[in-house]
Measured scan of single mutants.
Amino acid sequence: TTVKLGDIKVTFDNPEKAKKYAQKLAKIYQLTVHVHGDTIHVK
């Protein structure tokens, strides 16, 4: 599962960890989390 934020891409083996990371980023940057299959976009 890949978390994308602009040019930053972080890949996790564990989808749950990816989701938590995405939510953490979203909170920090006051953005929202969008899940598209294996990719989680923070924008």
Rank of each mutant, 00 (worst) to 15 (best):
N14Q: 05
T32R: 05
Y29N: 04
A18W: 06
P15Q: 08
T32Q: 10
N14P: 01
V3Y: 00
K17V: 11
A18I: 03
K43L: 14
A18C: 11
K4H: 11
F12S: 00
K9I: 14
I40Y: 07
V10A: 03
E16Y: 07
F12G: 00
H41W: 12
T39N: 04
V3C: 12
T39Y: 08
E16Q: 09
N14C: 12
K9T: 13
Y29K: 03
T11S: 10
E16W: 07
K19N: 08
Q23N: 10
E16P: 00
I8V: 10
H41G: 01
D13F: 08
V35G: 01
K24D: 08
A26Q: 03
V10K: 08
N14A: 04
K24W: 15
Q23L: 11
I40V: 06
K27H: 09
V42A: 02
Y29F: 11
T32M: 08
K19M: 15
Q30G: 15
L5S: 02
T11C: 15
Y29I: 06
T1Q: 04
D38Q: 10
E16C: 10
K27S: 09
T11A: 07
E16R: 07
I28P: 00
P15L: 12
I28G: 01
V10C: 15
H41T: 13
I28Q: 10
L25W: 05
I8P: 00
I40F: 07
A18D: 02
K4I: 15
D13S: 12
V35W: 10
K9S: 13
L5D: 02
I40T: 01
T39R: 03
V3K: 02
T1E: 03
T2S: 06
T11H: 13
I40E: 01
L5M: 12
T11M: 12
K19P: 01
Q23D: 13
L31H: 04
K20M: 11
F12A: 00
T1D: 03
K17D: 14
K20F: 08
Y21W: 12
T39D: 03
A18N: 01
H41D: 07
K20W: 11
L25K: 01
T39S: 05
H41N: 06
T1Y: 13
K24Y: 15
H41L: 12
K43F: 15
K17I: 11
Q30T: 05
V33S: 01
L31A: 07
D38E: 07
L25I: 10
A26E: 04
H36L: 13
A18F: 03
K19C: 15
A22T: 01
D7G: 13
Y21V: 06
